[in-house]
Design a binder for these strands. Structure first.
Lengths: 215, 215
DNA sequence: TCGTGACTTTACCAAATGGTAAAAATTTGA
DNA sequence: TCAAATTTTTACCATTTGGTAAAGTCACGA
C-alpha cells in the first residue's frame, strides 16, 4: 500500500510559486500569451528560467494556473449577488464591486479579456463548468425579481453582459481612456454614470398605489 | 530636379497587398501580435514569407497598416453622429451602427481591443491625433443637447465609453457568450436590451407643458 | 554535524522565427 | 518581340525561445 506522498509544500516553494505567478500575471497581461517569454517572467520574478521550470511544467501550465486562480476572484462579486436582498440595490452593489475590482485589478481584467478575445483556448472548459452554472443561477434570480415586480423587465443575460462590459472597460481600455480623459477622478464619475444608468433601467415602474415620497 | 516616381501601384500589387492585409487581420486578431507569425500570415494569404516581405518592411509594418486602415472604419459610426438630428434617435442610431459593426466585423473589434489592452503600443499616436479630436467634438455636441434640454443630463464621455463597451463586447467576448447562450438570435435581443437601456437613460424628463401622447 | 532531499545554477540544445541575398520567373511597355 | 522592371522562389542565416541534463548549493531533521 504505497502511500501518496503528502509532501507538504515548503516555505520556499510557497514563496517562489507566488513570485512566479505574480510575474506571470504581469507579463502575460502586458504581452499576451504569445508575446510573453519565460525569460521575461523569470526576470520579473527574480529567478532563473530553469528555476521557473522546476516549479511549473512549462509556459502553458503557468498561464493556465494564473488564469484558474484568477477565475475564482473574478466570479466572486457575482457570487455575492444575494437573492434575498433588494433587487435594485443588489444589482447596483454588484456593479460597484465589479467596477472596484476592475480598477484595482487591471492586470487580471486584461489577462482574462485577452484569453476570451482569442477564443478562450485554455479557459473554455472552466467557463462551462464554473461560469455557466453561476450565470444561469443568477439569471434565474433576476428573472424571479422581475416576475415579482420588484425589478423592471430586462433581459437578465444581456443585463449581466452589459454590467461586465461597462465595468471591465475601465481596466481593459485604460490606455484609450488615458488618452481621452486627463482627469484623475475617473472612478467616481464612472460609478456615478453607471449608477444613473442602471438605477433608471432597473427600477420597476411604480405598480400603482405606492405614493411618491414627499418632496 | 529629380522627380519623385509616381510609380502607380500595379494590379498585382493591389491584389497581394489586400491578400496580405486580410490574412494579417485574421491571424493577428486570432493570435495577438506576439502570437502571430509571418509564416502563418503568409500561409493564410497564399504567399511565401519572403514574398510578404517584398510588400511590407516587416511584421510590425503589416500590423500597423492593418490597424491604421481599421481605425478609419472604426470611427465612422461616430463621425456620422449628426448634431442636427434628434438627440435620442441620433444616439440610438449610433448604438445600432456600432452593434452592427461589431457583430459583422468581430476580427476588427478583437484586433483593436487587443492593441488597446496591451497599452496601445502602436496606436497611441493615432488615438491622440484621430480619436481624441473626434471624441471631444462629439462630447461637446452631446453636452449642447443636454444644455438645450433635449437630452437627459449624462456624462458625455462616460456615455460614449458605455456605448463602446456594450457594443464591442458582443464581438470581443463572443467566445464567452457562446458558452453562456445557445440562442442564435443574439443580435436582436442585444439590440433590444441596448435600446431599452439607452432610451430610458437619454430621454429627457418631460420639461412640463408637453402632454403625453394619448393612449 | 552531517546526510539527504529540496532547490538553483551552468551549460546546453533543437525548433521556430523574423528577416535577407540573389537567382529565377513573370509581367509590362515600347 | 524583347529588354527592363516587377514579382516570386530558393536557399539561407542569426537570434530568440521553450525546454533539458546534470552538476552544484542549500536547508533541515535526525
Amino acid at each position: 500500500m504505497s502511500q501518496i506522498k503528502p509532501k507538504k509544500t515548503s516555505r520556499i516553494q510557497m514563496r517562489n510559486r507566488r513570485l512566479i505567478l505574480n510575474a506571470a500575471l504581469e507579463i502575460f497581461s502586458r504581452d499576451g500569451f504569445g508575446g510573453a517569454t519565460l525569460d521575461a517572467i523569470a526576470a520579473n520574478a527574480g529567478l532563473s528560467k530553469p528555476n521557473l521550470l522546476y516549479y511549473f511544467e512549462g509556459k502553458t501550465e503557468i498561464y493556465v494556473t494564473v488564469l484558474s486562480q484568477l477565475m475564482e476572484t473574478w466570479l466572486d462579486p457575482l457570487v455575492e449577488l444575494d437573492s434575498t436582498g433588494d433587487p435594485v440595490e443588489e444589482l447596483l452593489g454588484y456593479v460597484r464591486r465589479k467596477l472596484d475590482m476592475s480598477i484595482e485589478m487591471p492586470r487580471e481584467s486584461k489577462l482574462f479579456a485577452g484569453e476570451i478575445i482569442q477564443g478562450a483556448p485554455q479557459m473554455k472548459p472552466r467557463l462551462q463548468s464554473d461560469l455557466k452554472p453561476l450565470f444561469d443561477q443568477k439569471c434565474a434570480v433576476i428573472q424571479t425579481w422581475i416576475d415579482e415586480g420588484r425589478l423592471a423587465p430586462v433581459d437578465p443575460a444581456h443585463l449581466l453582459f452589459s454590467i461586465w462590459s461597462n465595468t471591465q472597460h475601465y481596466a481593459d481600455f485604460e490606455a484609450q481612456i488615458g488618452v481621452l480623459l486627463d482627469a484623475k477622478n475617473i472612478q467616481p464619475r464612472a460609478m456615478r454614470h453607471l449608477e444613473q444608468m442602471y438605477r433608471q433601467l432597473l427600477t420597476p415602474p411604480d405598480p400603482s398605489g405606492v405614493a411618491a415620497p414627499p418632496d
